[in-house]
Write a protein that binds this DNA or RNA. Structure first.
Lengths: 344, 344
DNA sequence: TTGAAAGCGCTAACAG
DNA sequence: CTGTTAGCGCTTTCAA
């Protein structure tokens, strides 16, 4: 059951291994008949070039590393799907790494990826140790950031304008008459920008921000639910009429909590999420949210990375997409009456 | 920015590369002081052994291939998370491949994975070309099937008892008084077993199966919705009172369709899904479903595979899990009145 | 206890 | 147009 090597095809085709190598890589000149003969033998023998060997010779591994927080989070699984598809189309495989926003894991994965000699990296998690990332960049490893716009990292990036996303979400709520708007955000860099957008919108409407209405948690449906339950308990006498969450998972949690509390949506409580994942579309009532152009971003990020890999061009590019407000049922104004204004 | 190699370490430590190799692999005997000295130098130089080179020498690549239909499907993203975690714990990386149940892609990925010399394969999609899989097995490639129990493939497997799952879901519906139960199943092997379970339950209750109530589609929320809309149109005068779907996504689609049709759940229509993904938990009303022990299965499958890889033991093992019926709101009997019986 | 040397499968000058 | 040859970084006898 020995692997068939370049020597086997060379022998069977009656040529040298150099010739075979040339037909594999489509390089050099040679008689068409020779090329054809070799190709035929390769097929007959079902020959598969050993990437390890060619990688050893300085060719790439045709593999990229994808660092994300957690693939089971719909935003990441949807992104990963696009990324894997596009990479595969272009002849690359992708190794996934779930960092869980954990410094140890981030470093460990970077190390693993490094000694597997991946051709490039897509960093889709808010990396804790930016210096390590810059170190990789200095090592000339192609690397592009996805979704996270850390200015400290000197790499190409594709992301959505998080500030704007937070702003339009909050503004939408304000336009619907809400004045007491809570925010539950996850503990990640991108969320900070969304929070700033929220703050910015409040300010531009001249509304004071109540720090008690801002909570930070790690992203999960359950945490979202528990956090809102708690927040509500803290404000029973004067609960917020709307809540903006930094992602859909948390928003779904809020919806679940609202159900427990017997609050009707959107009358008693309006909710708006972020990401426009499948969860937003399938929620009942369907979830208003801020959409990121997932498909486009996923494609761009691999195109940028592969371009860096193949051309060697390391110039830093940034693509920032505008987020889109998706209004669904959780923020619909059901009557002409705006929500009860809880402004003092 | 040259890579540091075993030669650099050897030179700086004043030993031969053979010695360095031995400390890398923790093999051979040598003076403790030598080992310590070499280790120190490796750290100083931040030396990372090149896996390509050692793979060339017949050592593994510490990489496994994961073939699934579509990572953006929650059941697969949840499974992948577990699988990647466990693999990483054991020192392996995982390359994901979305086959989309497409023969071409399956074959293409197999080829790619093969010439990347992955150490083993987890096949979590219903592979069309079983012979190709058996071919890999004959090539002595460690391979374990996940979720799919194709008897034609001679490999170890971990799966859930799909027949039983279909049976208990349907039986639950029957116990709730339903007699006209539709089934919408995806076009995959595992679904066939679920369908057989459905048929078996009907039969054991002496209910005739109406072929018009059975539909096959590819899995997605949208397809589920459209299919149910169509099915309903075909049966306006006498619609089914319950529907069993072969996965949660389709069930969510049915829920969405029911909303459009103004059917109240579970009174007018009861729905039960399969998989117990996040979609089932967050649906409103929450979705009854058949749970697979995702976490356990994910762990088992990598443990089995890595065991095959590392021990060389190719004996075929099968682990079949019992599914669990999860009753939530979409099949709750809300009053003492059972559903209207549409039996002739 | 250590090292010299052969070779894994492939690429890339360089010769012929 | 084709082949010879010298490595790529590592592992593994085998000898010292």
């Amino acid at each position: 059951m020995m692997e068939v090597t370049i020597y086997d095809v060379a022998e069977k085709a009656g040529v040298s291994i150099a010739t075979v190598s040339k037909v594999i890589n489509n390089t050099g000149n040679m008689r068409e008949s020779t090329r054809g003969k070799v190709k035929k033998v390769m097929e007959q023998l079902n020959y598969q070039p050993n990437i390890m060997a060619s990688a050893l010779m300085g060719k790439g591994t045709k593999t990229i590393g994808l660092l994300i927080n957690d693939i089971s989070n719909p935003i990441f699984s949807e992104l990963s799907r696009i990324i894997e598809d596009r990479s595969h189309e272009k002849g690359y495989s992708v190794i996934i790494c779930n960092t869980d926003d954990d410094v140890e894991k981030e470093l460990k994965y970077l190390e693993v990826l490094q000694n597997k000699r991946v051709d490039g990296l897509i960093v889709g998690s808010s990396f804790k140790d930016k210096s390590k990332l810059n170190e990789m960049i200095n090592l000339n490893v192609p690397l592009v950031m996805l979704t996270h716009m850390d200015e400290e990292v000197n790499a190409s990036k594709v992301a959505v304008d998080d500030y704007k996303g937070g702003f339009i979400a909050t503004e939408h709520l304000l336009e619907n008459g809400h004045r007491s708007i809570a925010i539950i955000a996850e503990l990640a860099d991108s969320s900070s920008k969304r929070i700033k957008g929220y703050l910015g919108a409040l300010e531009s409407w001249g509304i004071n921000h109540d720090p008690m209405l801002m909570k930070r948690i790690s992203a999960s449906v359950e945490n979202g639910m528990n956090q809102f339950l708690e927040l509500y308990k803290e404000h029973v006498e004067n609960p917020p009429t709307a809540v903006f969450t930094s992602n859909d998972q948390i928003a779904i949690g809020v919806l679940l909590a609202a159900k427990k509390l017997n609050l009707s949506i959107p009358t008693d409580l309006s909710v708006i999420g972020f990401d426009d994942t499948i969860l937003a579309k399938t929620a009942q009532p369907s979830l208003s949210t801020v959409a990121q152009p997932i498909a486009g971003m996923g494609k761009e990020v691999v195109d940028m990375l592969i371009d860096e890999i193949e051309t060697g061009d390391r110039s830093v590019k940034k693509i920032i997409h505008d987020p889109t407000l998706i209004i669904r049922e959780t923020t619909k104004v059901t009557s002409n009456q705006p929500c009860i204004n809880s402004d003092p």
